[in-house]
Computed example of a mutant assay.
Amino acid sequence: MSCKPNVLVLFYGYGSIVELAKEIAKGVEEENGEVRIRRVRETLPAEMQSRLPLDKVKEIPEATLDDMKWADGYIMGSPTRFGNMAGGLKTFLDQTILLWKDNVMYGKPVGFFTEASTIHGGHETTILTMSTYAYHFGMIIVPLGYKIPEISQTVSGGGPYGATHLGSKEELDENERTIAKFLGKRVTEVARKIKCCQA
């Protein structure tokens, strides 16, 4: 068994969440992990979908349960929806009950990312509500702490819970990019240690 970990970056959304996912994937690659970026299928009604920038993610494959089986570690993201993950991600995760029964993800590391328009608009609560999923699967939640100085910045997204984007700014700033890459590296590092111990 190779000790090179497979890391799945799984997300819902179309805005800066996509850019966060790509920066996280760069961090996985810099830590010598194999990465897949996957989006979940849109579940909103057709009349609402017509208002979404679907072109922004059309080149990114939709996630499957096989992607979940493939991964040694996961990094999951969603824009905040009233302090919680978006329904599209929740719908996909609900399907993983088929994997829960077989302990497919038990003991595997997971990190989280999100974006919210305001400082107090759900950065922390969205990550915390996504993390409840991981408890039920027996996954290892990988927080960031304050290991890198960018996490202490108060004018950007990102914090000890995970990578985030402060959506009042259209583009990710350099702190947010650095934090996103660090999340990718951190989950990959933990996934490698676990995988190598089991080899």
Rank of each mutant, 00 (worst) to 15 (best):
M1E: 09
S2K: 15
C3D: 07
P5G: 03
V7P: 09
L8A: 01
G13F: 02
Y14E: 02
Y14F: 12
I17F: 12
I17K: 04
I17D: 06
I17E: 04
E19R: 06
K22D: 15
V28L: 00
V28E: 00
E29F: 01
E30K: 15
E31G: 12
E31K: 08
I37K: 11
R38N: 04
A46F: 10
Q49I: 08
L52G: 06
V57R: 12
L65R: 14
I75Y: 08
M76D: 14
R81S: 03
F82C: 06
A86S: 10
G87M: 01
G88Y: 02
L89H: 15
T91F: 04
T91W: 03
L93T: 07
L93Q: 03
Q95S: 11
T96H: 01
Y106D: 09
G111P: 01
F112V: 01
F112M: 04
F113V: 02
E115R: 07
A116I: 05
I119A: 15
H120W: 12
H120A: 13
E124D: 15
Y133V: 03
A134P: 07
Y135P: 07
I141Q: 13
P143H: 04
L144R: 01
L144E: 00
I148K: 06
I148L: 09
T154L: 08
G158E: 13
G159I: 02
H165Q: 00
G167H: 10
K169V: 11
D173M: 05
R177Y: 10
A180D: 03
G184R: 02
K185I: 01
A191L: 07
C197S: 11
Q198E: 13
